[in-house]
Design a protein around this nucleic acid. Structure first.
Length: 272
DNA sequence: CGCTGACCCTGACGGC
DNA sequence: TGCCGTCAGGGTCAGC
């Protein structure tokens, strides 16, 4: 479920319910996530401590307390919601309980997500090599073009690589490449600079629009009624294999690139 | 260093 | 109705 826009929407949804509140307890029902959850460490660090703020880095959520951080990743199927003692569902693995009764509850059926603790965020192995934020000041076409030189990997893999730029998942990589007129299997190093200018612009535009949409359809974090669905309306190629391109009526093609489903219009998207 | 493919896990869905 | 194969929005890691 979570692409960058949903992680950002999750942040905005839970922030007012947890920031400046004190943790009373942390309950872990299932500690087997992407890495084992360091249960006693997290309990010790958070018990009777305040959550000072919450930030996002790529698709990671960072809950700060006493200058240290709880690092949360939602993986493929994770979600966070505000709940209460009841309403525990299958795969609700972790509760962070606050002294006013609020519970931040983590659910993750596939368990590809993670809960880790860091006392030195800048040097944490999950964060230290991450590329720039696509919505930050250091991301643009020139940056992408420079890093792409001599790279033979398909451009879709290139922009999904979090060391290059964070937060571009399978959906938005496909959509941004369509909007830019670039065939996803093109070797990154063969795509011209002017195309990278367009691509960087499209990535920013699409992510911003999705955050805006996510904010309007995914805002109820209290009842747990946070069904996504915003993206389906505006998708041009993702999941549309075999259907007509909205622009030229050519049949959208499907192709596996780097073990991930990809879709593109053979007419609108150029091979470089 | 860059690239490829295996792998982590559960659930939904389509074909038989 | 059930069984089986395939696929899913994430990312790491070993091996070449």
């Amino acid at each position: 479920m979570p692409e960058l826009p949903e992680v950002e929407t999750t942040l905005r949804g839970i922030e007012p319910h947890i920031v400046s509140k004190s943790v009373s307890s942390v309950i872990v029902r299932q500690k087997s996530l992407r890495w084992p959850v360091p249960v006693s460490l997290i309990q010790k660090k958070l018990k009777n401590k305040r959550i000072d703020n919450i930030k996002r880095r790529g698709k990671y959520l960072l809950l700060e307390s006493s200058k240290e951080h709880l690092i949360i990743h939602l993986g493929m199927s994770g979600s966070l919601r505000i709940s209460d003692k009841e309403h525990i569902k299958k795969h609700d693995h972790i509760d962070i309980c606050f002294n006013d009764g609020t519970i931040l509850r983590y659910c993750d059926p596939r368990r590809f997500g993670c809960f880790l603790w860091s006392d030195d965020l800048d040097n944490h192995f999950l964060l230290k090599d991450l590329g720039p934020e696509p919505l930050g000041n250091h991301f643009n076409g020139e940056y992408l073009f420079k890093l792409s030189k001599k790279r033979k990997t398909p451009i879709k893999n290139f922009i999904m690589n979090s060391k290059i730029v964070v937060g571009v998942g399978n959906i938005y990589a496909s959509e941004a490449l369509y909007a830019s007129g670039i065939k996803p299997s093109s070797q990154a190093g063969r795509v011209p600079r002017n195309k990278y200018e367009i691509l960087a612009h499209e990535i920013v535009t699409i992510l911003k629009k999705s955050i805006k949409d996510g904010g309007t359809t995914l805002r109820d974090f209290v009842s747990g009624n946070n069904e996504p669905g915003y993206f389906k309306q505006s998708l041009k190629v993702y999941g549309r294999e075999g259907k007509e391109c909205y622009a030229c009526k050519t049949i959208i093609k499907g192709q596996r690139i780097g073990q991930r489903a990809s879709a593109y219009c053979p007419n609108c998207q150029t091979r470089f």
